[in-house]
Design a protein around this nucleic acid. Structure first.
Lengths: 216, 216
DNA sequence: GCGTAACCTTACGCACGAGTAGGTATGCTC
DNA sequence: GAGCATACCTACTCGTGCGTAAGGTTACGC
């Protein structure tokens, strides 16, 4: 009414695409800090430097907004890992590169990742979303195992593979959580440790066998 | 006022301890089905066959109630696993028994476990609670590894052990989630698969080496 | 220079559910 | 069988925060 030019002297009108990204940035930040429920649309809007109805106009309801966050972050992560694929390498190399990319990504997006995915695990509407993306990862890992097995002339039931892949993915997620909680930890080192336990197994670790990252 | 004897013809007055257990049962059920936030105290009260103020009188606020659920379920789980300890067995035996007990418990408390712990991961107030109990598990596993290592005259930094233990616990939790989502799956079998990946590692699995449960 | 469409605001309605006030019945003790 | 503690109820208050109605303001095309 009266105080109009209070906050920003010249207040920029920005095109939709830009504002949407700002909003998503803010949303990820606030959802991370507060958790889905405790986060308020007002705070997100304020953090984005915009007013609430704009958020509704562009990204829809709170749930839709959260899902949009999930999608963007997931896409980024998949992209980061996809670059490390190289399907013609031996399995240990592929596993190593995948893990390195994964932990590298998490390390670079600590607050983003951790709480976002921790959130998504819980509440019904997002669990499906999250499960879908986890399934993609599991499929990739299972496919890798299957590929390696066939190359050795062996074959294993799909369920069996899925469960093993699931365990590996789960272990990685846990270590990702650990990484997100320990700001001083190095992603590369964490990936190496994960590689050790996943590739070698506890029996060999106890016997002093260790796996070390290749020169590259 | 008028409809008093509607629900239960003879309505029993029960001692506090009994009612508290009924309330906790109901709370676990409702929290599981709906998630922490979506669960309403009214629904919990109704499910327990009691009115809301009783819940407040006995178990306190919604948060306190949830924490009470967590504590009870955690205690039950620790108890179930503790019985399988046997510290003088070789490490593979100990790991196997621990895993079997763990998955057995989860299989027997499917709705209880899954959503309760999935919930707790997310929201701030409970994360601490959950982290504490997870830390106990991690310590146990790390201690086991340390014990085994010393017996072989080797020694490893505590952080190193912790991370490996963390990965193992994480993988188990993931498979527990998987188990909770697949009603047809057998706990024993799941434990075996977990044992395979944890003890042997991917490299040996690919080579066709498998671990099989002992006759016991 | 003027319309119009996109951008952006303030200010509110409204539902929902946590937590409570105050009162009633029941059993146990002496 | 009076008294007292404990179990239990109905019926509210009230904060909080999602989602929206209705209206300003700036840029851009013509």
């Amino acid at each position: 009414m009266l105080a109009r030019v209070s906050s920003t002297p010249s207040f920029k009108r920005l095109p939709r695409a830009v504002r949407e990204q700002q909003m998503l940035d803010a949303a990820v930040k606030v959802f991370s800090r507060r958790g889905f429920h405790a986060a308020s649309m007002d705070e997100i809007a304020e953090d984005a430097g915009i007013s609430k109805p704009m958020v509704y106009a562009y990204l829809g309801t709170k749930e839709e907004l959260f899902i949009a966050c999930l999608h963007r972050e997931t896409a980024r992560m998949v992209l980061a890992i996809a670059g490390a694929a190289a399907p013609d390498l031996p399995p240990d190399q592929r596993l190593w590169r995948g893990l390195r990319a994964f932990f590298g990504f998490v390390g670079a997006h600590r607050d983003g990742w951790a709480v976002l995915y921790r959130q998504a695990r819980g509440s019904q509407p997002f669990a499906a979303e999250l499960a879908a993306m986890r399934a993609r990862l599991v499929d990739v890992v299972a496919g890798m195992l299957d590929h390696a097995l066939r190359a050795r002339g062996r074959e294993v039931a799909a369920t069996e593979l899925e469960v093993v892949a699931y365990a590996l993915v789960g272990a990685s997620e846990s270590l990702a959580d650990w990484l997100a909680d320990h700001p001083e930890a190095e992603p590369e080192k964490t990936a190496t440790r994960m590689m050790n336990v996943a590739w070698l197994g506890a029996a060999q670790l106890l016997d002093g066998v260790t796996w070390r990252p290749p020169a590259d």
